[in-house]
Every structure is written in structure tokens, then in C-alpha cells.
């Protein structure tokens, strides 16, 4: 997938993270396995049906059971990987997040955008979001900031007009007015 392309295009930036990945895999899959065991038990309470041999709970339990097996298999595999990778060459989790701060900032802005939208409406929220993310991604001053403002106004309002008036998709109008 595109992930491979990315690794080709910027190999230098990727710090050696095999060890960190193995640790993350163990934790992630162990947590998932625990969660799925819980859900498996809970799915037992789902009603069965008098019309069919399988009730509402059987298919999810089948899937959850298989999931737990795969999670545990990945935990075992990652534990094995832990032993062969070099701990010292690995970058810390803090640095990992710092390197990707722009990605997390963009996602955070998107979350604020979604939270604001029901209150101030799609058009204004989009305008502010477009401006904010362009600012985060580097349009800080001068001509680029001017372009960013233009893009925000044109697309914020333009997309709203296009989708709500041409494609007739109803978008939140805003509760405050």
C-alpha cells in the first residue's frame, strides 16, 4: 500500500523503531484480547431466537473467539521479536509523538471542528477549521496567510453552498442562531 511508498520516499527520517513497535504490539494486543474476552462473555447475554439456531450473539462470539486467538498469537510473535531487537537503538515514545506532532495537531483541530459544528454551523466551522489547519501546517505570515484566508473563505462557504444547495445534502446550520 501507500505505506510502502512512504517508507521508500523517506527512509532516513524513520528512526529504528522495531523494538518500540514490538513493545506497542504486545501491549496493544494484550489489551485487545482482554477487551474481547469481556465482550465474548457479555455477548452470551444477547437473546437467542426461536426461529433460527443462531441467535444475535453467536456470530459475534465466533468472531471474538477467533480474534482473541489471533491477538495472543501476535503477542507471542512480538515477544519473540522483542528478544532479537536492539533496545538501545530505539527511539522513545515521547520522541515518536513529537516527530508526528503536526499529524496529531491536525487530528485535534478536526476534533474541535466536529465539536463546534453543531453550535456554529457547518459553514463557519469549516471556514475556521480551514484557516486553523493551514496555519498549523505552515501558512504563518504574508502571502501564504493571505492565500490561506482566501482558501478558507472560498472553500468554507463554497463547499457549503455546493453540497447543501446543489447536492441537497443537509448540513448542520448551527444552534446558536
Amino acid at each position: 500500500m501507500s505505506k510502502d511508498a512512504e517508507m521508500v520516499s523517506r527512509p532516513a527520517r524513520e528512526t529504528s523503531s522495531e523494538h518500540g513497535k514490538a513493545v506497542a504490539n504486545v501491549i496493544f494486543n494484550a489489551v485487545l484480547a482482554a477487551l474481547f474476552v469481556g465482550l465474548f462473555v457479555q455477548a452470551g447475554d444477547l437473546p437467542s431466537s426461536m426461529w433460527e439456531p443462531l441467535g444475535a450473539g453467536s456470530f459475534p462470539r465466533l468472531i471474538l473467539g477467533a480474534l482473541v486467538i489471533f491477538n495472543l498469537a501476535i503477542v507471542v510473535q512480538s515477544m519473540a521479536a522483542l528478544r532479537v531487537t536492539d533496545r538501545s537503538a530505539s527511539a522513545g515514545a515521547r520522541q515518536w509523538f513529537l516527530q508526528r506532532r503536526l499529524a496529531f495537531a491536525t487530528l485535534a483541530a478536526f476534533a474541535v471542528y466536529a465539536l463546534l459544528m453543531p453550535w456554529i454551523g457547518f459553514a463557519l466551522a469549516s471556514l475556521l477549521f480551514l484557516l486553523a489547519v493551514q496555519f498549523i501546517l505552515g501558512a504563518r505570515r504574508g502571502r501564504r496567510l493571505l492565500i490561506a484566508a482566501l482558501v478558507a473563505v472560498i472553500f468554507g462557504l463554497g463547499l457549503y453552498m455546493l453540497f447543501s444547495h446543489v447536492f441537497l445534502i443537509s448540513l448542520p446550520a448551527g444552534r446558536l442562531w
Partner: peptide
């Protein structure tokens, strides 16, 4: 530039998600 295309496409994603059921 990415700094323009990423937020604009994200707004389109929001529209795509809203167009389905209009649920925030």
C-alpha cells in the same frame, strides 16, 4: 501545497460522513 489540500479534503470527508445520515 499539502497545507491547502489536507484541510480542504478533511472538510470533504466531514461532508461525506454527514451526507450519509446527517448525524454529527
Amino acid at each position: 501545497p499539502k497545507s491547502i489540500i489536507v484541510p480542504v479534503v478533511l472538510v470533504c470527508c466531514a461532508v461525506g460522513a454527514l451526507a450519509l445520515n446527517n448525524r454529527v
